[in-house]
Design a protein around this nucleic acid. Structure first.
Lengths: 227, 227
DNA sequence: ACAGCTACTTAACAATAACTTAATATTAGA
DNA sequence: TCTAATATTAAGTTATTGTTAAGTAGCTGT
């Protein structure tokens, strides 16, 4: 397997989850440590300097949000990625998490496959360094994940979630044609099934907002973003 | 029209479910077989080599998890997708399922719409995985599958699907003469039958777009690509 | 709890690019 | 030269996407 030296710190009060995650990630060659609560997490993180911190939202004493805020204060951890493990895809939780400085989140139950995928993509990103944020700038378009907004010729438009994810996905691989299947998988996931025209409608709304020139249709294949 | 020959093995102890699934999937043109338990599933899978295995989690004797693990041990089934049918979205079940090597899961009661959508997207993925030949650079031509485009003397032309596939096929074996039969088979497949002049028309459009010099006609034999 | 709002999805229909065919012209090779 | 094969053109067809409007669900603030 891939011998990445990416360091991961798991923080969760549930021993079972710690074990499952540790098992799966160690198996993939990651350097894994764990902590049972926020206080211990802070202590271990200072020494271990993990690249990635998996943080449970619900924990006794100090919850994940609070722990994340404090982790963010630590100078040496400024480059670490914090990923939340949230019990549900509650909007509140997600927003609060991002507010506290989280870089990503995963909904429980954690599926090892998804987790590994995420971890590996993040660790690849870390290795390739200079990725400051997940923001994208193309021509006169600025796509900003932090605020879920797009700045297009000086005016900022806040996009709904689905529209943003769709645009972000297209723009993150400019020039590449993304098939409807790929889009479905990335934006909607495998458990949701929506009709054929749903993507078109979102595309239309995006075009309405940012202009026609960016998103090109490749009939029978998919869509692609061009600068 | 779309006559996919994707093979599906249904494994469930409930005859009603077997019948419903078999009916729905057969109707869509899939090649369907079924088994009533894990033991039979293993036996049939070895001979049938299904592309997709729909596996009930709860079964007498050998449950789905165990069956999946054993299926995963079989060399010839390494490319098969295993989809679990789970009675509930229980955490334990999901984690165990993914651990056992499942690729996806569907919650019961199975809605035909969701099932068919999932199956068709998976079977499309399976089909498209087979022809992942990378990009081609010949002389001043760059043929890029990601963007479905050809860059010819500094300007990028996005090609329609058939034209792209045709060009890609010719260019992937430069110098070799490809017969009309070979082209038909590769670009159109065995299920579709089109007239004789169709290929000519696509060839003409390609020549129009990338210039005359690349594609040469060998009368009575076929076409060849030259650098 | 409620109205009002936004995001999202769906369905029906329109539009269109991609593709195919048909009719006719041209060409290469025996 | 003669003929079968291919080229060309324009006119169908069809599959795929675009568009619109309306429905649904979930959230927000009162």
């Amino acid at each position: 397997m891939k011998k990445t030296s990416t360091k991961i710190l798991i923080v969760d009060d549930d021993p079972d989850i710690r074990e499952i995650l540790t098992y799966n990630l160690s198996n993939e060659g990651y350097n894994v440590k764990s902590a049972v609560n926020g206080v211990e997490a802070l202590k271990k993180a200072k020494k271990f300097i993990p690249d990635i911190i998996l943080l449970d939202v619900m924990m006794p004493e100090m919850d994940g949000i609070e722990a994340c805020s404090q982790l963010r204060e630590i100078e040496s951890l400024s480059k670490s990625m914090v990923i939340f493990l949230s019990a549900r895809g509650e909007d509140f939780t997600q927003i609060a998490a991002f507010d506290a400085g989280a870089d990503d989140y995963i909904n429980k139950p954690v599926k090892p496959k998804i987790l590994l995928k995420k971890i590996s993509s993040i660790s690849r990103r870390i290795l390739s360094e200079n990725n400051v944020t997940s923001n994208i700038i193309i021509g006169s378009l600025v796509i900003d994940r932090d605020s879920y907004s797009v700045t297009h010729e000086k005016d900022e438009i806040t996009l709904p979630r689905k529209e943003f994810e769709l645009l972000h996905m297209l723009a993150s691989k400019p020039g590449k044609v993304l098939t409807r299947d790929e889009i479905m998988f990335k934006v909607w996931g495998t458990q949701v099934v929506v009709g054929d025209r749903t993507i078109d409608v979102h595309i239309r709304k995006l075009r309405e907002k940012i202009g026609e020139k960016y998103i090109k249709t490749i009939k029978g294949v998919g869509y692609k973003f061009k600068a």
